[in-house]
Amino acid sequence: MSAGLATPASAAPLLSVRDLRTSFRTDSGCARAVDGVSFSLRTGETVCIVGESGCGKTALALSLLRLLPPTATIAPGSSVEFEGRDLMALDASGWRAVRGARIGMVFQDAMTALDPVIRVGDQVAEVVRIHTPAIAPGAAWARAVDLLTLTGIPGPADRAHQYPHELSGGMRQRVMLAIALAMHPALLIADEPTTALDITVQAQILALLGELQRQLGMAILFITHDLGVAAALADRVIVMYAGEVVESAPAELFFAEPHHPYATGLLRALPDLSHPGDRLAVIPGAVPSATDWPRGCRFRERCAFAWSRCEAEHPPLYAISAGHESRCHLAAEPGRRVVTAASTA
C-alpha cells in the first residue's frame, strides 16, 4: 500500500498531531495516558500504531475525534490539524461535519459499539442521512444496502433488516466498516478492529480494508497490538510505550532494522513461521501505571541494556536515519548495545 508515495513531499500532511497530551482523572491520581505524541499522516497512507495494551492507543484515537469520556482532559498545548483545520478549535457543529464524514472510526468491539435495538441497515443509513439532510429515507436505506454489499456481507438486503445480536462478530465488524466508510472519509481510524475476531475472519477483514483503501483512496490510522497485522498493512509503523512514541519508521525499515529495545522485544515475541519450533521471547515485566510513569526512560525497568543514563535522563526521540526515530539513549551510545549483547549472550 504505497499510495502515499504518490503525494508530493511538499504537500501538507492530511493529519498532523503535535505534542498531544491526554490525561484521565482517576481515584489514584492523574493518568497521563497520552503524553506528548506527535506524528503525521499523508493522504492514502497507512500508519500502524503498535503497542501493548494500556500504552495509550485507544486514548490517542479517541482524542483525535474528541470522543473521550468527561473525566479526560486534553492539555492546552496539544495540536491536531486535519485537512488544514485545527481540530482542537472546533465547536460542536464543526465536529459534526468532521465526524462520520471526513473521518470514519471503527471500534474494537463491534458487539458493544453497535446499537443493540436498531436494525443494522438503519444504523448505516443514519450516518448517510445525518450528512445528507436532503436524502429521501428510501434512498438512504438503498445506500446502506450498497455499503453493506461493499463490505462483503452476503445477502445484504436481508442482513440490513437484522439486529446486531443476530450477526456474527465478523459481520458486525463489516457493519461498523460500512458505517465508517459511508461518506468516503479522507481518514479511517481503526482501533484494533480485528482483535475480537478469529484468525481467518481477521485476515478477510484486513484484505477487505486494503481493497477498500485502494478503491476509496483514504488514509488509515490502524491501531493494533499485533505486529503481524502491522506488517501486512503499514506504510509506517509507530511504536507506543507508556503514553509516548518510542519508535517511528517506514515499515520495511522498521521490520529490517528495529532500533528501540522495546520494538526489538515485540518483534522477537512475534511467532516466526519459518522457525515454527522456536520458543517465543517474552518481554519481562508489565507496562507501568499511567498515574506514575517511571523517571528517565519509561522502559528502563524492563530493558536488558539499561544503564545509569536511562534513569537520569528522559530520552528524546533520536533521529536514526531519514524518517526513522527512536526514543533510546543507545542511539547516542551505540557501542553499549554490542557490549551488553555480548555479555549476556
Partner: peptide
C-alpha cells in the same frame, strides 16, 4: 457510558 453512544457521536450526531 455505553459504547454505541460513542459510535453515534463518531457518526456525527449531535
Amino acid at each position: 457510558h455505553d459504547d454505541y453512544l460513542r459510535t453515534a457521536r463518531a457518526k456525527g450526531l449531535s
